[in-house]
């Protein structure tokens, strides 16, 4: 079942005489319980796509659907009911003056038991709830923001380069956590990253973007083994791994 989809999304920024088109006729579909990877380099439009899907920015044209119902033009105040975002800047996703507990309680009226359950699920302990973001590690902070998203009962998680500021070992843990909660909580995930290897490890499907255009789209195995665009091939060649 398709939970989130977009049709013919376009976005253009005009800055004096220069114009940038980070989205050009982009279509996407996210199925229930699926992890969709969006891969591209800087300027590919992958982050803009995530902003448009979340309602933080409005597309110039094109339509967005949640469970078949159009939500184009709705701001994050409304889309937050069915989707949540995890940001690259884990520390910046929490008010520096608020304790974790206050931040987690902000959008949900869940009981303390439920909060503790979710905290446990993301691999954290109760003792961290009283802390402010700067007294957590980057990995702990990112787990907290996943906990916050889970507490709001949104069915979709939009992840924007959520591990690129983390160490390799922490990254591996956060990615593992994403896969676990996908299975346990039956949520669907969009994972935006520049790291094709990372995306290939956990995503069911991959979309490759370049200059605002989707150049490749399909099952992970297919995109990796028989890429349909030259750019994907170039990306695959550039992957430096061990």
């Amino acid at each position: 079942m398709t939970i989130l989809s977009g049709k013919d999304l376009n976005k253009e920024y005009v800055n004096r005489d220069r114009s940038v088109r980070p989205l050009q006729h982009v279509d996407f579909e996210l199925n229930q319980g699926e992890i969709l990877g969006i891969v591209g380099e800087s300027g590919s439009g992958k982050s803009t796509l995530l902003k448009v899907i979340s309602g933080i920015e409005k597309p110039d044209s094109g339509k967005l659907y949640h469970m078949g119902k159009e939500y184009t033009g709705q701001g994050p105040e409304k889309t937050g009911k069915f989707l949540q975002m995890i940001f690259q800047d884990a520390y910046g996703s929490f008010d520096p003056r608020m304790s974790m507990e206050r931040s987690l309680k902000e959008g949900s009226d869940e009981s303390r038991e439920e909060i503790l359950r979710v905290i446990g699920e993301v691999g954290l302990t109760e003792g961290l709830l009283g802390r402010r973001p700067r007294h957590l590690s980057g990995g702990q902070c990112q787990r907290m923001s996943i906990a916050r998203a889970l507490l709001s009962h949104a069915g979709v998680l939009l992840c924007d380069e959520i591990t690129s500021a983390l160490d390799v070992t922490t990254q591996a843990q956060v990615i593992k956590l994403l896969m676990e909660i996908r299975d346990k909580e039956r949520i669907s995930i969009v994972l935006v990253s520049h790291d094709l290897a990372l995306v290939s490890m956990i995503c069911d499907r991959i979309m490759v973007m370049k200059d605002g255009i989707v150049v490749d789209n399909g099952e992970t195995a297919k995109v990796i083994s028989e890429p349909s665009s030259d750019y994907t091939r170039k990306l695959l060649e550039s992957v430096i791994t061990v």
Binding site: V168, T169, Q171, A172, I175, D195, L196, A197, L198, S200, M201, T220, A221, I224, S225, L236, V239, T241, V242
Partner: peptide, 12 residues
């Protein structure tokens, strides 16, 4: 060993 294990690898 942990560092090496945690490096993302292309899944063929």
């Amino acid at each position: 060993r942990k560092l090496i294990r945690d490096v993302p690898r292309l899944k063929k």
